[in-house]
């Protein structure tokens, strides 16, 4: 889970071909994996598609990288959270089965957020 940075210091997760803020190419990455973030909002989805765990707890989490905020959506290990709680990423080998999307078209491992 890496945020991408352009020469003008704009930070995004995920990366993009051009920086959404200024249009420059992104040239640098910053790992979010060993950081603690805050829950911006969360939900528990009970109507999940084929291949997705049920229920599926999800959050948008905000990380502070040298004073800059960058956000990531990810699964939660629990729904026992509140807005503003601290969470940390834990690696999961397979977050879901591919569903309608081609398995080879993207990665399926990633990070789930666990309350600190």
């Amino acid at each position: 889970m890496k945020a991408h940075r352009c020469p003008n210091d704009h930070l995004t997760y995920p990366g993009h071909e051009r920086c959404p803020e200024c249009g420059e190419h992104q040239t640098d990455t910053v790992s979010l994996e060993d950081r603690v973030g805050k829950v911006v909002t969360w939900t528990t989805s009970t109507a999940t598609p084929p291949g997705v765990r049920q229920p599926n707890h999800l959050a948008i989490v905000e990380f502070d990288v040298d004073g800059q905020a960058v956000r990531a959506l990810g699964q939660l290990t629990t729904n026992d959270v509140e807005l503003g709680d601290d969470v940390e990423p834990v690696h999961v080998d397979r977050l879901r089965d591919p569903g309608i999307r081609e398995e080879a078209s993207q990665e399926w491992d990633g990070y789930r957020f666990r309350p600190v």
Binding site: S45, A47, G51, N56, L95, R96, G99, Q106, W108
Partner: peptide, 11 residues
């Protein structure tokens, strides 16, 4: 892809 792999839906 970074959204889809978490099983996110529009709801």
């Amino acid at each position: 892809p970074v959204e889809y792999k978490h099983g996110v839906t529009l709801p």
